[in-house]
Write a protein that binds this DNA or RNA. Structure first.
Lengths: 183, 183
DNA sequence: GCGATAAGATACACTTTGTTCTGTAAATAA
DNA sequence: TTATTTACAGAACAAAGTGTATCTTATCGC
């Protein structure tokens, strides 16, 4: 990819990230983004079709990064009853989410938070699917997975709203307690 | 209240409800609302300061209705350990959500669902606050309430997505099972 | 019927979005 | 290096949308 493109794309992401620290996505204008990124209007639209497209691209980047780097490998884990692997894995995810805090807090706070949380839930749905044997089988499997992924996403939202005052380990532990997997 | 005002207010609510079934709130314009409601532009702004103000008023009306009509009275309930009151109450809420005549079912299932679920969570937060003594005290109270209200909202979403195939009682029971209050 | 007030209609200023155009600078390939 | 392609900046532009102001008409409550 052309170095100029890389530079511009990064400048736009950085500008949006900076703006998201102080205001919600809905209230940010393209003009503000290109002023801070120090690029021309036409350049912005050469990179992203719309402002929403930018948000989606940014979310995808962040999310992909979180779920592909630094997590314990699947092959190293076992899914046996009572294993602490799920809690460890959730803790790792929380660590990565916190690293992206400056971007995520602004995104999650507003109406656009659902977009990102939707991505997160999708991945969590798969993740929990591999641990489902550990859980209560007396409810429909789909209900179970929705409950687990939805409530973890809710925990993330709570955590970001309190400005990540608790540690990732604590939050993972709170969550495990709530879903009946108290250590 | 003046009959003209009542008529106009209802026309606006109905128009928004109709539009929300097929598109999300952000993409609905004031022009579309007043066209369907068949009122003038200045009339709209005589009733609501902004488009957001309309949404807020409408949500408040709908959920206030659900949470105040037909539910067992607070005074008749006790909040003692193991009482079935919470499950009963949640079941009643599910009944109202399913049979709401105000297009709520269509809205919750549609693209604007998240928006309304946000309002639902606010009410649930208060509701669960009155039952918090029954729950695990080893996590922060705010985390607990977020988990309970968020995951119930998630259950509602799942239920609407499956087109309310299960009964309200079944869903309430699934939920109670997941939060460790199995009967 | 009468005064108050809600509604209708229209024009308006303002903001934001996304497009289009032209000239310039930078990367790349020969 | 030279030629070619590509990205960028800046500005002007149309279109859409928001909320305001004003004036006239219709309807309500008494």
């Amino acid at each position: 990819m052309d170095r100029r493109q890389q530079k511009t794309r990064k400048a736009i992401f950085d500008a949006l990230g900076e703006l998201l620290e102080s205001k919600r996505f809905e209230n940010i204008t393209v003009q503000e983004i290109i002023d801070i990124a120090n690029i021309g209007r036409s350049t912005f639209y050469a990179h992203f079709e719309t402002k929403d497209d930018l948000l989606k691209s940014m979310c995808t980047d962040i999310f992909h990064h979180i779920f592909t780097s630094g997590l314990p490998q699947e092959s190293d884990l076992d899914y046996s009853e009572g294993s602490p692997n799920l809690e460890l894995k959730l803790g790792h995810i929380l660590y990565h989410l916190r690293e992206s805090k400056s971007n995520l807090k602004g995104i999650l706070g507003g109406e656009s938070g659902e977009l990102f949380l939707g991505f997160l839930k999708q991945y969590l749905h798969d993740l929990f699917g591999r641990y489902k044997a550990e859980f209560e089988p007396s409810v429909p499997e789909d209900f179970l997975l929705h409950h687990l992924s939805g409530s973890f996403a809710e925990a993330v939202k709570w955590w970001m709203a309190e400005d990540t005052k608790h540690s990732p380990e604590e939050v993972a532990s709170f969550y495990m307690t709530m879903i009946g997997k108290l250590k």
